[in-house]
Write a protein that binds this DNA or RNA. Sequence first.
RNA 1: GCGCCAGUAGCUCAGUCGGAUAGAGCAACGGAUUUCUAAUCCGUAGGUCGCAAGUUCGAAUCUUGCCUGGCGCACCA
Length: 522
Amino acid sequence: MLKREIERIITNSLSKSDIGFSSEIVLEAPRFLEHGDYATNVAFQLAKTLKRSPMEIADKVCGILNQDSGFSELGKASPLNGFVNIALNNQGLWTRFFAWSVDKMDFPESDDRFLVEYVSANPTGPLHIGHGRWAVIGSSLVHLLKRVGIKADSEFYINDAGNQVNLFYASVTGVRDGKGVPENGYHGAYIAELAKSDQDPLQAMLTSQRQVLKGLGVEFDEWFKESSLIQPQINNVERAISELKGLGFIYESEGAVWFKSTDFGDDKDRVVIKADGSYTYFASDIAYHYTKLTRGYTRLVNLFGADHHGYVHRIKACVKAFKGINFVDDVTFKVIIGQLVNLFRDGQPVRMSKRTGDMIMLEDVMDEIGVDATRYFLLEKSPDTHLDFDLSLAVKQSSDNPVFYVQYAYARICNILSKLDDGQLNAIKKDGIELSPSERDVVLEVLRFEDVIWHSALQLSPHKVVHYTYILAKSFHLFYEFNPILRAEPHQQAQRIIILKQLQLVFKECFGILGISAPQSM
RNA sequence: GCGCCAGUAGCUCAGUCGGAUAGAGCAACGGAUUUCUAAUCCGUAGGUCGCAAGUUCGAAUCUUGCCUGGCGCACCA
């Protein structure tokens, strides 16, 4: 990618010089046009060791770079206030843009195997908007990881064992038999619906969750049932606990069996086998994460709702404890906490509770504003921001909705290209390329794509791709405004067609990662 | 009481590895359309980056303390 190439050139050039800088140069993008296309702060870093002022060093660095033929072919360096600013020349920029392609992107290879676990909602009720948030973030994260060549699988953990499920069954049969819902049981219209049906309530609930998620474009490689942890041949709960015991992290007290999670930063130790001999929910969780390791995953990523963040410490503790096992090496475990979504309608908060009938479900939101808008809005913000989501606003603003803004850019591109054929490309100039300001801007944005998705993937932050997509659309719309294509001179037209084609492919890539559609017309 | 997350423009939020003069969208106001789809573009206005100290050439960003809001603190799941 362009940025890395320039970094390499500069690092090379400086390491050959007498300036004595051997570590890698990292470029940043300046905020102001007059500061060029890229900038580096080497001079500040060198100031201490060289005992010279940053201005003086920046001056010298620029001299070295501008003497270097590999660098000067591409751009020009100039010092300002201690920064080294780099302005690329149009020819160098265009040559790289012309040669670049989404199919030729080159990402570092790695043997890491990611497992992204997300949603994992209890099968005791319909999905709410919060689940929708983890769902779109998780699915886009998996798309993103795969796109940069990282091996990643996705998984939904089904809590189909334990008290809550029993209570759920009891609630449905209670209504069915006219005896009413037990204390602390589940209420709501969906319980009454399930009671009317002959279907197994748990199966019905799972099927419906799966359908809603599929409708949202969210599919999983694996639906892992808690109940499958214990099988006639293999009892994974027993195995996981005995592994921990072998490592010395299990003890008995007050008639129960405990895991010493305080050794790994938890507030208190946790019970895994109750005094009555039954396993706790946490025991299943230990076993579940144990199977992630036995299945060969080395990078565990869990998306939890903020209402479950209390488990983070203990689960991290068990994964850390498992590092003592001989087949486990170099495992990392990252928990992404998705903050809750507050739903509003006309500025009034809409409460969501499984225990009352008054409930807005994920499905309702999708019906109301559409899948693309639902995904875009839920994906747009960083997961650790508390999201206020006003439905009436999302509907009202639908005419200048950001999701339409980015899709419209794509539709405009498709429309123009449909009126042209590749014959026009013969007029392309190879030398003496001129670029208008908005052409230049759009070219630089396209070339940034590779860098953006790589860093978004490393930081497990798909929302950065949303941000980029919006910026790209913005720079396209501006380009469109000032650079006619159909009426342009042949060589200029050819040049702009190249730009459109590159844009079209990058937009398609972005939409693919975000999971929204790419309309050819609107 | 303890823990996690947040606090940036009227509202909703970006802000990379600490960089130069703080960034968008919406809302407000003023403009642009004989045109490749105006679902667009241009401009104006709007700031004590919660508060206070510290680290340093430089802090919205890192450290510490405090304030406010959300969530969580079971031998429930």
